[in-house]
Amino acid sequence: MTKDEIRAAFLEELSRVAPDIDPATVGDDDHIQDDLELDSMDVLNLVAALHERLGVNIPERSYPEIATPALAVVYLDAALKSAAM
């Protein structure tokens, strides 16, 4: 999976969890809680959706590492690569 594909998947799941967010308006450095106003239940739903879609099980302590699209792409890319090895 390329980084662009990971980013697209992240934004798609984000907009599924929060249908009122237009993924086209989300910036790479937008914080999902501070800027996009996801609450803790939304974050859990996003993590669950990413687990289902990408097979990456993000533990609670790693939630800060997916706090923005830019951070999430780095984290998910590394997780997918280490799973493939």
């Binding site: 803790s40 859990l44 993590v47 669950a48 990413l50 687990h51 099980n57 993000i58 533990p59 609670e60």
Partner: peptide, 17 residues
């Protein structure tokens, strides 16, 4: 909750709320 959620897939985790 930390113990309960440890190792659980996200869909089974419980929040403080």
């Amino acid at each position: 909750l930390e113990t309960l959620n440890d190792g659980k897939p996200p869909a089974e985790r419980v929040l403080l709320g």
